[in-house]
């Protein structure tokens, strides 16, 4: 039982990490109806920019390496980079495609993925970097000593960050004028334009916020596994989360993440050995597929009704 609980808690906390990436997808889909295929590449670019600035600031400007000043300035510069990327995406990719079918916008983001991946390596090089956030990825002592259950301090920190982000984004969507405008744009571009909502500004805002979410997700995943191209693969973990939680729901991303994280770990441990192991790569997709048959809009997604 103790082992089961440990696997379950570990899975839930992993699920939060997936949800962090899924949030970026939800944000852009909710506000613009675009499934942003480039979200994984944005996570990579954001994290790489952060560690890149951490290297450049001490080397070029004589700042003290590893200092808080370098950390926060790097964070701000990386965020500014993501804002510029967001604005450029709106100007170059999205603006010419206003009122085009969603599949066109989706295809454009596939192209954007390659551009962002190439841009990241061209700007900062292909070297693999480490990233320390000052929180050790080790078990909490008393839980381990008293109950024999290993719960990572780092995973708990990531869960806290994700919870804060969700609260922040939920408040943004529900209680601010910008948030209401974002939802209006998501419903219908033309209708939103006709009542005076500045579509271009809204898109810039939403891509900048998605850039911020990508930066946070990139830093958490980068601290865990290193800042390297594989960060783009985190998007693969987010997809079943989105299917389960719904593409338009911020809380759905979290709940979806928890379900996917817990179920894939339990499946790997208890079912994996029966079928040769290594099933957590595809198991979440099977689960999401099964879920689609019952509830196509996801747990918290908006039900789509068409007049026929």
């Amino acid at each position: 039982m103790q082992f089961f609980i440990e696997v379950l808690i570990g899975g839930l906390l992993s699920g939060v990490m997936y949800a962090l990436v899924a949030l970026g997808f939800v944000l852009i889909y909710k506000a613009s109806g675009v499934f942003n295929f480039a979200q994984g590449a944005m996570v990579f670019f954001a994290a790489l920019s952060f560690v890149g600035f951490q290297e450049v600031l001490p080397a070029r400007f004589g700042m003290e390496a590893g200092s808080a000043a370098v950390f926060w300035l790097s964070f701000l510069l990386a965020f500014a980079t993501m804002v510029v990327l967001g604005i450029a995406t709106e100007r170059i990719v999205l603006r010419p495609l206003v009122n085009q079918p969603p599949i066109t916008l989706f295809m454009a983001t596939i192209g954007l993925t390659y551009v962002v991946e190439g841009l990241a390596q061209m700007t900062w090089g292909a070297n693999v970097r480490g990233l320390e956030l000052g929180i050790m990825d080790e078990p909490i002592g008393w839980l381990m000593d008293d109950y024999g259950i290993g719960v990572s301090k780092f995973d708990l920190f990531a869960a806290g960050v994700a919870a804060s982000l969700v609260a922040l984004l939920a408040a943004l969507f529900q209680y601010t004028k910008v948030g209401r405008a974002l939802r209006a744009v998501a419903d219908d571009h033309q209708a939103a334009l006709s009542i005076g909502i500045p579509l271009q500004t809204i898109w810039r805002v939403v891509w900048a916020v998605a850039g911020f979410v990508a930066l946070v997700a990139g830093m958490i995943w980068g601290a865990r596994n290193g800042v390297q191209f594989a960060l783009t693969f985190t998007a693969l973990k987010a997809l079943p989360v989105l299917i389960l939680g719904g593409f338009t729901s911020v809380p759905g991303a979290i709940v979806g993440g928890l379900i996917i994280g817990a179920s894939e770990k339990l499946a790997e441990v208890y079912v994996g050995p029966l079928v040769g192991g290594g099933i957590e790569g595809w198991f979440p997709y099977m689960l999401a597929l099964a879920f689609l048959l019952v509830r196509p809009e996801g747990l918290f997604g908006e039900r789509h009704i068409d007049r026929v």
Partner: peptide, 16 residues
């Protein structure tokens, strides 16, 4: 033998 699915950026269950 314990398998890790590609790309291997999640290994919690394997290490447990």
């Amino acid at each position: 033998k314990i398998a890790v699915a590609h790309p291997g950026n999640e290994q919690q269950s394997q290490w447990l």
